[in-house]
Design a protein around this nucleic acid. Structure first.
Lengths: 117, 117
DNA sequence: CTCCTATATAGACAAACGTCGATGTCTCAA
DNA sequence: TTGAGACATCGACGTTTGTCTATATAGGAG
């Protein structure tokens, strides 16, 4: 039950570009865990909706209706993204605001790039 | 049963950077399909092993043993990657050689980058 | 305190997934 | 023609995943 959020994504991704060295089993498992978090239509839309939101912060109530999913399902997807280190949660009073973690997406982008430095 | 390989990944990915516009349901489904293809430890290792191979082409027989999976399972994973447009298959005689499709990985990398042009 | 609202958690269920052993297909060599 | 080897396909299986409803928790208004 260790939250994946504690995984240092940068470490997993940095210095292990996919196309330069064969991945070890452990590195592949870690990277796959993060990729699984974004390999879902609902979660991709959540990420893009949060990124497009004024101030890049959004609460669950704003995200539920345009997605066409129930509130518990949206909360579940948001938890997956937070645990993966892609979003951060900021609880203000009754509302929970979610913000992108840009470095996480950048790390994923870097590891996939065939033209890595 | 339309192979995902016929999906124009560049079109799915290009001009729809994740963090700039909210994804439509259809675009999110297409992108998630491609991401699911690489969100697996065995397939990530296959990609990196093929990339690291002399000439960037490898046959199934070379990939089975280091992965520790059976030949049918490796063939299955390779098919997923080919259908996703990430690998191309080249059958020469009895052997099947697999090669990276660099543009596909680059497209994925681009769409995830928060610092997209 | 009491109610209302926003969110999280629990439990259930169907669908999708990863893996395997068995078998089919195709190519080459003898 | 026959046999062997490389790869693909099939069918089965246990596990994981996405979704829901129902319920719990917790903050703010009155």
């Amino acid at each position: 039950m260790i939250p994946a959020a504690t995984l240092p994504i940068m470490d997993v991704v940095c210095c292990a570009p996919l196309v330069r060295h064969p991945l070890t089993a452990a590195a592949a498992t870690d990277l796959a865990r993060t990729l699984k978090a974004i390999a879902d239509p609902a979660r991709l839309r959540l990420l893009s909706m949060i990124a497009a939101t004024e101030g890049a912060a959004a609460c669950v109530c704003d995200l539920t209706e345009p997605l066409g999913l129930t509130q518990p399902t949206v909360s579940h997807h948001l938890k997956v993204l937070v645990d993966a280190g892609l979003l951060s949660r900021d609880k203000r009073g009754v509302w929970a605001y979610f913000t992108l973690v840009p470095a996480a997406l950048q790390s994923l982008s870097d590891v996939l790039s065939p033209t890595q430095v």
